[in-house]
Amino acid sequence: MVNLNGSIIPSKEVKLGSENRAFKYGDGIFETIKIQNNKIIFFEDHYFRLMASMRMLRMKIPMRFTLEFLQEEILKTVKQITKESAIYRVRLTVYRKDGGLYLPNTNEVDYLIDVIPVNSVSKNTYKVDLYKDFYNYSGLLSTVKTTNRMINTLASVFADENDLDSCIILNENKRVVEATNGNIFIVTGTTIKTPPLTEGCIKGVIRKKIIEIVSKNPDYDIEETSISPFEIQKANEVFITNAITGIQSVTNYRKKKFSTEITCKLKNSLQMLSVIGV
């Protein structure tokens, strides 16, 4: 079952016509949201990112799109899932209404909420490598989760073909941007680095939380700075963040093996934040 503009219907009955703008032009955005033990994790952060993205893409925000309204719509959809789970993955997609060519007929929007149960969210062994066939171009638009994720798709295919769990995406300057499935952090000594938004990485909710956690910890320094692929080779630890997994330790990059000591501590801190809902 899915939620299309407030109506709960079987997923097979969703009719997206040939004029659907998310299909024709990638004219849509989405939020991937975690529900754990019937609680929406960090929903306020997801909500404000969604609103900022809609404004940036000049979509008309409906008056009913309050935080409370969308929260109720998500929970209403979850209740229709017959397979019970402790964790659910929610995708909230917002896209401009049908019609027009590059110039849309309207800036009003439709929304679609779909939910799937999640059995496992992290792996003990996690291998990555660089994806160098295409680049993610730096700039503000690249920080928005639009429905055009072609580089992530191609990099994921590459990872599958090469027995990898994920790939590291580079920008046109051949600097690290993110992983195919989330933001990336590297740990060298007590310094934790992640690419700044100006490099073209997604403005991740968990990325934001990790920066806040590390900033308050006197034992570590956080730097939002450009990262070269060579620095990954020299790092002590590497981890990937996204809304569903939270933190995924990277264990292998080419011939390099990473430790996970600091990453595990950050996992615990993030778990505490998600419990208290900060």
Rank of each mutant, 00 (worst) to 15 (best):
N217D: 15
I210C: 00
I227Q: 07
Y126W: 04
R149W: 08
A179Y: 03
T191P: 04
M54C: 13
I211D: 07
Y126L: 07
I168E: 00
T263F: 06
S138Y: 10
L266E: 05
I184N: 05
I8Y: 10
E13W: 08
E84P: 02
E231R: 03
V128R: 02
S53E: 00
M150D: 09
K255G: 00
K256D: 05
T66W: 06
I211V: 08
Y126P: 02
E31V: 08
A159Y: 02
Q248E: 11
E231L: 06
E31S: 11
D133R: 14
E68D: 14
E108L: 11
A155M: 01
P10L: 11
N136M: 15
K193D: 09
K265D: 05
D98I: 03
P62W: 09
F69I: 03
T194V: 04
N20C: 15
D129S: 15
E161G: 04
I74T: 00
V187F: 01
I202Y: 01
K193S: 14
R254D: 01
E199K: 04
V250Y: 03
Y47L: 00
N171K: 03
V78G: 06
T245C: 11
A155D: 02
T77V: 03
E44Y: 13
I227Y: 04
I81M: 06
E172M: 00
K257V: 10
I151Q: 04
I202L: 15
P104E: 09
K208N: 13
A243P: 01
G99H: 07
E161R: 14
E231D: 10
S7Y: 08
V177R: 03
F48L: 07
K12H: 14
E31D: 00
A86K: 15
E68W: 01
S11C: 06
Y102H: 13
K127I: 12
L70F: 09
L75C: 10
G28T: 03
A159S: 06
F48Q: 07
N148P: 01
G17N: 12
K34H: 08
K209Q: 15
L141C: 06
N38S: 12
M272A: 14
T241W: 04
N37T: 05
A155G: 08
S53F: 05
T251R: 06
L50F: 07
N171S: 05
T241K: 02
I206E: 07
Y102L: 14
S259Q: 13
S7T: 13
G26K: 03
T106K: 01
N162E: 00
A243N: 02
G28F: 05
I211N: 04
T143G: 09
